[in-house]
């Protein structure tokens, strides 16, 4: 099989792996900064750190999906298929987090 995008993406792959490594290092930095076991001490900073960590993880996942899994180069219908669970998961997770905060909470 040879896709329409069979040209080499090696330089892009290299840039992505470096970006993923750097982003993981930044995640560690944030995790250290917000304190793994002191969430109750700085709740506001903790929440900002958590949002930053989730944002970085989502960005890394999008990079893997778009570049390594070739969604950027493939027909849009495959991206639509890939994004379906995310579309379903987002309101579910948003509700779960809201419910957690509204209940005994963070």
């Amino acid at each position: 099989m040879s896709d329409a995008h069979a040209e080499s993406h090696l330089p892009t792959y290299t840039r992505v792996i470096i970006t993923l490594a750097v982003a993981t290092a930044i995640e560690f930095g944030i995790a250290m900064f917000i304190g793994l076991d002191e969430a109750g001490v700085k709740p506001k900073m903790w929440m900002i750190g958590v949002l930053a960590l989730i944002g970085l993880a989502a960005w890394k996942a999008i990079l893997v999906g778009k570049i390594f899994m070739h969604l950027k180069y493939d027909p849009k219908i495959l991206s639509l298929l890939a994004i379906t669970p995310v579309v379903l998961a987002t309101p579910l997770c948003a509700f779960c987090i809201w419910d957690g905060i509204a209940g005994p909470g963070f």
Partner: peptide, 19 residues
Amino acid sequence: AMGFVGLIGAYIILRASMP
């Protein structure tokens, strides 16, 4: 991915409700 969504969703709600 739906399976993972279920597990991750359950993890989040349990953790969020137990400070």
